[in-house]
Amino acid sequence: MSGGMSPGMGETPLLAVEDLRVDLPLEQGTLHAVRGLSFEVGRGETLCLVGESGCGKSLTSLAVMGLLPRRAKRSARRLSFDGQELLGLSERRMAALRGNRLAMIFQEPMTSLNPAYSIGDQLEEALLCHRRVGRRQARERAVHLLERVGITAAGRRLGQYPHQLSGGLRQRIMIAMALMCGPELIIADEPTTALDVTIQAQILHLLLELKREMGLALVLITHDLGVVARVADKVAVMYAGEIVESGSAVEIFGNPRHPYTRGLLSCVPVPGRTRPGEPLGSIPGIVPSLVGSLEECGFRERCALAQAACRRPVPLHRLEAGRAVRCVLADPAGAPA
């Protein structure tokens, strides 16, 4: 399994992604937004995809869900959910999975909820589409989940519209909507970005509580390393459309091996170690253009350790079990993953 991002021995992964690519045709050429991504998520696991804005995290989630823009081209050697190959699946069969066994929480609930429909209509729709239940049962399920995600007066909220609710309430409703059919996997695309810090903590706590209670697998997309440290079982660090380092959260935070991962961690204050007023680290330069081919390490121009070998394509090297790094400084004995 490329990148070493795999469940326990003998287990069949719930989500398996191998050599995923997403290309977007533009006037100036083809934008290779996601370039050869591979990872696996086991049942009940939390995988965090982390990286700065524009590295391809959100497009990866949309590719898995089959929600890419019409002009985007998706390809992969393998893209399967619970053993079922998603590539080539008809839209009707994909729709039967989406919102049912496979759900997504989007980054901005105000643009994800339909302003023309009440909260109740939007919550009940998923259950009515995927289950043989009546309107009354769907309403009872909606009320139960609204209460479960911490919304008071849940019955009254069903008649309200998105614009009548705060950002925190809308995000809780998006979580309840994702849970309506009891999915096995939830992809959460930066679910706390649009919220203030206090509400962010509440939403994260709620997601983790629900994950443990319901035995969900979770793919959490974020650029917040503080969030990753609190919730992740496994971490995949993305840069310029590729995974540059992967491993367990303990390994990534305790012994980062890629210069980009080290740079990201240096930007985060550490309680008890970072003194007040002490400048934090930064990563100089900008992300390279992904239009056309990139025949070198994507981080080369920003890396203080760059050398001549970085001008060639760098494979993902497998280190110890579960670890992989895309860097010429990786253990030379490590076989390409």
Rank of each mutant, 00 (worst) to 15 (best):
M1W: 05
G4K: 07
P7M: 06
M9N: 06
D19V: 00
L20F: 07
R21T: 09
D23L: 10
P25W: 08
Q28P: 00
H32C: 04
S38T: 09
V41T: 01
V41N: 03
L47I: 12
L47A: 06
V50A: 15
E52G: 13
E52H: 09
G54S: 11
G54N: 06
S58H: 12
T60Y: 14
L68Q: 13
R70Y: 11
A72W: 13
A72G: 15
K73L: 12
S80K: 02
F81D: 00
D82Q: 12
G83P: 12
E85Q: 12
E85Y: 15
G88S: 12
S90Q: 11
E91W: 06
R93F: 03
R93K: 15
M94P: 13
G99R: 13
G99M: 09
L102G: 11
I105A: 02
F106C: 02
Q107I: 14
M110R: 15
M110K: 14
T111Q: 13
N114Q: 14
Y117W: 14
I119V: 15
D121F: 11
D121R: 15
E125F: 09
R131Q: 15
V133P: 08
G134L: 14
R135T: 13
R139N: 02
R141L: 15
G150A: 06
G155W: 14
R156I: 11
G159A: 15
Q164W: 00
M177C: 06
G182S: 05
I186M: 03
A188H: 04
A188C: 09
A188V: 05
P191N: 03
T193C: 04
L195Y: 10
D196E: 08
I199L: 07
Q200K: 11
Q202L: 10
L204K: 11
H205M: 07
L206T: 10
L207N: 08
L208S: 10
K211D: 10
M214D: 07
G215K: 08
G215H: 12
G215I: 08
L216C: 05
T222V: 04
V228P: 00
V228D: 05
V231I: 12
D233V: 05
V235Y: 05
V235L: 07
A236G: 15
M238F: 08
A249W: 00
V250T: 14
V250E: 10
E251N: 10
I252N: 02
N255C: 08
P256D: 04
P259M: 05
R262N: 04
R262D: 01
L264H: 01
P269D: 04
P271K: 07
G272F: 06
E278Y: 05
L280Q: 10
S282Q: 06
S282P: 01
P284H: 10
G285Y: 04
V287S: 13
V287F: 00
V287M: 15
R300L: 13
E301H: 10
A304L: 04
L305V: 09
A308Y: 00
A309I: 01
A309Q: 10
R311Y: 01
R312G: 01
R318W: 08
E320T: 05
A321M: 03
R326Y: 05
V328L: 00
L329Q: 09
A330C: 02
P332A: 03
A335F: 03
P336D: 03
